[in-house]
Write a protein that binds this DNA or RNA. Structure first.
Lengths: 138, 138
DNA sequence: TATTCATTTGCAACAATGTTGCAAAATTAA
DNA sequence: TTAATTTTGCAACATTGTTGCAAATGAATA
């Protein structure tokens, strides 16, 4: 387990530090998207706010996690599947936000549908964000 | 023109103030999504930051504008079409964010595609956000 | 039009969130 | 073990968003 997490860091040519292991562990344990604030709470404030900002940014840059657009003003982060690599995210799944419990899920098996973009526009990436009630809240 | 804007406010049972007229005018003139910061700049700082926050919130509550989720941490606002009413947005179109010029468009003619949500989940609303290059930047 | 009442606005103060520089500490490479 | 590099924590700051309250403005009535 710890081993697997260490490998993620090794593969991205990042130093293996207790801090980074802890944050990655949080993502694996919770298997849902986390905000900066979530991580601050879950970690029990053992490390600095700034460190969290910098660690998350590093992970995004390296393709270890990806960001999820949300309707309110908070950035959510979630673990990437194997397909992501440095500077190039393949985040081809739908995100689901539960209005009851606030949990954000990556629906890895739900593909992004085709969208008809008007002539003249060139699409690079499509984000689909669904709001509703999750299976635990019904 | 001014007349039409006044009517929007009247229909929502809001007082007609120079402030609100000005902000609505900005939305109509620019015909694209605006952030709080955009409005602050465009208005030439003639009114207070707090007033802008409160006005935007009021407009959202009344269904005059809607928010658009963005990958970075900024909320974008855009004028609603006729279909929206108080407390109930029908925001059934795709949003397009140009990576070059940063403009956010409401693609009013592009409908939200169907998304297959897993069993147990209940979908209320679907947001589709496309990144790419707009027709003015190619 | 003048007067009253409700709403809106601006100010001040505050809270939360995000950023930068720099020295100390930890990790890696030799 | 030592030297070079990277990461971390602290402090200070910048930006963004919130709340209470008094003054100003708009709406309603006479």
């Amino acid at each position: 387990m710890k081993e697997a997490i260490s490998n993620i860091l090794k593969n991205s040519q990042l130093s293996i530090t207790g801090n980074r292991l802890k944050i990655l562990e949080l993502f694996q344990k919770n298997s849902k998207a986390l905000s900066h604030a979530d991580i601050e709470k879950l970690s029990g404030k053992h490390f600095d706010r700034v460190t969290i900002y910098r660690t998350l940014q590093t992970f995004v840059d390296k393709g270890i996690i990806h960001t999820i657009p949300t309707a309110d003003n908070s950035i959510m982060y979630a673990l990437c599947k194997e397909a992501c690599s440095e500077g190039h995210h393949h985040d081809d799944h739908v995100h689901f936000l539960c209005d009851e419990c606030g949990t954000t899920y990556c629906l890895d098996n739900v593909n992004i549908p085709d969208v008809n973009i008007p002539k003249g526009f060139l699409a690079h990436q499509t984000n689909v964000l669904v709001n509703g009630v999750c299976k635990n809240c019904r």
